[in-house]
Computed example of a mutant assay.
Amino acid sequence: MEYIDVAVIGGGQSGLATAHSLLRVGLRPVILEASEQAAGSWPRYYDSLTLFSPARYSALPGLPFGGDPDRYPHRDEVVAYLVRYAERLDADIRTRSRVTAARAAGDGFALDLEGGQRLGARAVVTASGGFGRPNRPTLPGLDTFAGALLHVSEYRTPEPHEGQRVVVVGAGNSAVQVAAELAQVARVSLASRAPVRWFPQRPLGRDLHYWLTVTGLDAAPLGRFQRRPATMAVIDDGRYRASLAAGRPDRRPMFTRVDGPTVTWDDGTKEEVDAIILATGYRPDLGYLTPLGILDGSGRPRHRNGASLTHPHLVHVGLEWQRSLSSASLRGVGRDAERAARRIARQLRRS
């Protein structure tokens, strides 16, 4: 079995930022990435996805995003940026290396990889799986739906739904973005338990992320006060709110039941629907940590600000609300990565 100092599980934005910080403190990380390239989940998001943060606030440590700093980068720009970041990073990145189990082994860990390979590591950073499992809520009769039932993770473009009757479930950024896009080619309703909440993208003429930065709110250590993420307001420059106001899409309270192809709305009316798209978020997919016994009942690791509460050489990076509002974002993960690297360096020097 091969032995290494630090294994970073995941080669997306969290893993790359952590590897950068580990190199800066004199450690030689090995990044274990399950897919064919170090770009995380970004290549699998819907085609029209655009960041809400400008390029100047969307870079990882050590490499500016490039181009107009005030533009809002497209999904493909983010993928290209992460690939470029990985290429410039002097780290051992092993693609097609999916970790299936992490086990305690003495003062360190043994990692089982898909295909039967095993690695020993003195320390482990988990930087993958925080958003790996699409959340599919249990709604009355949804399992009987006769049309196309998708999670937003499976949605790519509106063309397959042209001319259809579509219901998008959710009230967050992705739900509103996808529903407004689909409404250009289909009849669409946005169904949610609560009304959409809005937040302007440019309050007082400056981008929201400018204000989050200058006030310090973006980096404030609020994680310990926020066990579960609050329902986030939709960040909008006015376009999406106008679309809903015009009824493209319309917004309705959550339907009460599904029977085959028929949806029953809260006022008792029924109609046939061609497709239901669940824009209902994600849950952690950290099953590879099960042998360590560190996951709570919802599948989240027990930690404080990313540091494991049970295993001193184990840290997490990229979890939602791990330490701050921006912990799981391109703009904020570098701060948590730096803290994780310093912690690991201190612990390995002591052992």
Score class of each variant (00 low, 15 high):
residue 268 G to H: 13
residue 81 Y to A: 11
residue 58 S to I: 12
residue 305 N to I: 06
residue 227 R to V: 03
residue 213 T to Q: 01
residue 274 D to W: 01
residue 67 G to K: 11
residue 187 R to Y: 08
residue 39 A to F: 07
residue 91 A to N: 02
residue 61 P to V: 06
residue 34 A to Y: 10
residue 49 L to K: 02
residue 173 N to L: 12
residue 342 R to F: 03
residue 163 G to F: 09
residue 58 S to P: 05
residue 342 R to T: 09
residue 206 R to Y: 03
residue 224 R to G: 04
residue 105 A to H: 03
residue 212 L to T: 04
residue 95 T to D: 07
residue 149 L to E: 04
residue 254 M to H: 03
residue 131 F to L: 08
residue 260 G to V: 14
residue 204 L to E: 13
residue 127 A to W: 02
residue 123 A to C: 06
residue 342 R to A: 09
residue 139 L to N: 05
residue 19 A to H: 05
residue 104 A to N: 11
residue 27 L to P: 05
residue 350 R to I: 13
residue 24 R to M: 05
residue 173 N to Q: 15
residue 267 D to F: 09
residue 300 R to K: 14
residue 66 G to I: 15
residue 346 R to E: 14
residue 96 R to W: 15
residue 234 V to C: 06
residue 160 P to S: 11
residue 70 D to C: 13
residue 3 Y to Q: 08
residue 141 G to C: 12
residue 177 Q to R: 02
residue 43 P to M: 10
residue 247 G to F: 05
residue 259 D to E: 15
residue 108 G to F: 08
residue 84 R to G: 15
residue 28 R to G: 10
residue 80 A to I: 15
residue 194 A to D: 10
residue 265 W to K: 07
residue 344 I to Y: 07
residue 250 D to C: 07
residue 221 P to D: 01
residue 337 A to V: 07
residue 298 S to Q: 10
residue 336 D to G: 06
residue 165 R to C: 01
residue 172 G to N: 11
residue 336 D to M: 05
residue 264 T to R: 12
residue 180 A to H: 09
residue 346 R to D: 14
residue 182 L to Y: 04
residue 202 R to L: 04
residue 235 I to L: 05
residue 130 G to Y: 06
residue 223 G to K: 03
residue 304 R to I: 07
residue 223 G to T: 00
residue 212 L to M: 07
residue 113 L to M: 10
residue 350 R to H: 14
residue 282 Y to T: 11
residue 199 F to Q: 05
residue 270 K to L: 10
residue 233 A to C: 02
residue 250 D to V: 07
residue 260 G to H: 13
residue 197 R to Q: 12
residue 13 Q to F: 04
residue 66 G to W: 15
residue 268 G to M: 13
residue 329 S to V: 09
residue 259 D to R: 11
residue 153 S to Q: 01
residue 310 T to H: 12
residue 267 D to M: 11
residue 248 R to P: 02
residue 42 W to G: 03
residue 234 V to H: 04
residue 290 T to M: 15
residue 181 E to C: 04
